[in-house]
Write a protein that binds this DNA or RNA. Structure first.
Length: 136
DNA sequence: GCCAACGTTGGC
DNA sequence: GCCAACGTTGGC
């Protein structure tokens, strides 16, 4: 089981609250080639951290990959999509500032390549995020 | 609101 | 196939 992180802009696009309300959504509108490759590697049961970009800049919750990746029939320019389902909204979000302060994250895409919208999360970082989010 | 980073497009 | 121009993203 692998961890990923998906960015969303909560005010003008989609938020963790929308996902909680709907329960399940199509993760689409991704155009970047590298991000699309990561989506194509996702498998059901993998987890996806939900990150709110722009104003909030923090990881706000966790979702689960709920389908195999497939080409989006509604958008021929954006080849890969998956369904994700809501798992939890963190009581204690993990901020970008905290992530940048952790030396283990220095080479992670979120820090090094800030414009990438969908990326893998190394296991040790995923566990560290979950520990903070769960107040450990 | 500004701008750095970076991806994409199109002229040559 | 190079590269300048341009558009987009997202941190600050």
């Amino acid at each position: 089981m692998k961890y990923y992180l998906g960015k969303t802009e909560p005010e003008q696009d989609y938020s963790i609250d929308d996902l909680q309300k709907e329960g399940r959504t199509l993760w689409d509108n991704i155009h970047n080639a590298l991000a699309l490759r990561f989506i194509s590697e996702m498998r059901p049961g993998d987890k996806m951290f939900i990150y709110h970009s722009q104003k909030q800049r923090q990881i706000v919750g966790l979702a689960e990959i709920d389908s195999d990746p497939f080409p989006n029939p509604d958008d021929p320019t954006s080849t890969w999509t998956v369904y994700v389902k809501f798992l939890e909204k963190f009581d204690r979000p993990v901020t970008l500032a905290e992530i940048k302060a952790n030396p283990d994250c220095a080479n992670w895409y979120l820090v090094r390549h800030s414009r990438l919208s969908t990326m893998p999360v190394p296991g040790n970082i995923a566990q560290w995020i979950l520990d903070i989010a769960h107040g450990k």
